[in-house]
């Protein structure tokens, strides 16, 4: 088991003929993930490494019965692409595009909420489920197995690069992941930490979750509240990067667009406290992921492999 994607995922890539998408297609197929269709307006009838290209999502759904979309289009076209996917009944949309205008993001997320569609991103590296060799996005690059091996830990990261690094720390500790998710570096994203914790709670194979966080937003505070309400009962190991930013003048953004501190909102120290008070294992040093995982998981999965 995993969350969000598995062997039943039938992926379409919107924007498949673009420069960005070519590499993703290449790496994804090499990993063993099947891509059922691509969509680029005006390029219907072509194929990319054997993947059939259609002009519309409607046609991709009709011909290939796709049920999940990876959006790899430039910022100016992202809103339209997501609305097209939603309108055609796609229930999982992974939006990789960076620098989407905020109003467009807000509109696509609003429409998705209304139609009960799960959005990962925007500005996400993607999702990976190593047990089924299924990935959506550039996650893992040319060698996904380097960082992502099957196991019992869920990984949620606000940073794309740190999704890989954190999953590698899990591997270094002697474990592997059920699913690793980069949730996207923007302020306005679809699925937040809390939403994914709810999915990991339901997933029997997931025995613990590791999160990598940054300054800005209230995702960690919301997750802490969710823990307090009993929504997530498995061990949660959390690291919040960027504590140095608290001593910088307010309004300064280091890292991703969402990493802005304003007043008390977004301060790493307050995020850490909220998570700690809610019962999470909040680690001071990132390397402690390894020892804490061994401690909390050692017994549950029958000792360190």
């Amino acid at each position: 088991m995993a969350i969000l994607i598995d062997q039943n995922t039938r992926m379409v890539i919107q924007g498949i003929t673009g420069r960005e998408a070519q590499m993703v297609v290449d790496h994804t197929l090499a990993y063993g993930t099947r891509i059922y269709a691509g969509v680029t307006p005006g390029k219907g009838g072509q194929n990319v490494l054997g993947v059939p290209v259609y002009d519309t999502v409607w046609e991709a759904v009709k011909k290939q019965n796709v049920n999940a979309s990876l959006v790899v289009v430039p910022p100016a076209f992202a809103l339209d692409a997501v609305l097209e996917a939603i309108d055609n009944g796609i229930k999982l949309i992974v939006v990789t595009t960076e620098n989407i205008p905020q109003l467009d993001s807000v509109r696509m997320l609003y429409e998705a909420r209304k139609k009960n569609v799960v959005i990962i991103g925007p500005n996400t590296v993607g999702i990976i489920n190593p047990k089924d060799n299924v990935k959506m996005g550039s996650i893992g690059g040319d060698r996904p197995e380097r960082c992502f091996v099957p196991g019992n830990v869920g990984v949620i990261s606000r940073s794309g690069g740190m999704t890989a690094e954190t999953s590698w720390m899990v591997k270094r500790a002697g474990f592997g992941v059920t699913t690793s998710v980069g949730i996207g570096g923007d302020s306005f994203i679809g699925s937040t930490i809390k939403d994914l914790l709810a999915l990991f709670e339901e997933d029997e194979e997931t025995k613990a979750v590791v999160t990598f966080s940054e300054p800005g937003t209230s995702f960690e505070e919301d997750a802490a509240q969710f823990l307090k309400e009993g929504g997530f009962t498995k061990p949660l190991i959390s690291y919040v990067a960027g504590r140095f930013t608290e001593s910088m003048p307010e309004g300064t953004v280091f890292g991703h667009a969402g990493a802005m501190i304003s007043g008390n909102t977004g301060r790493p120290s307050l995020k850490m406290k909220a998570l700690q008070d809610a019962g999470a294992h909040v680690i001071e040093r990132y390397d402690d992921v390894i020892s804490v995982l061994k401690t909390v998981l050692g017994e549950r999965v029958g000792g360190v492999k």
Partner: peptide, 16 residues
């Protein structure tokens, strides 16, 4: 340093 999150972590590691 590099990566949005990787840079934050690296800077924290040095200042720590």
């Amino acid at each position: 340093c590099g990566g949005g999150g990787g840079s934050l972590l690296s800077f924290d590691a040095l200042t720590f």
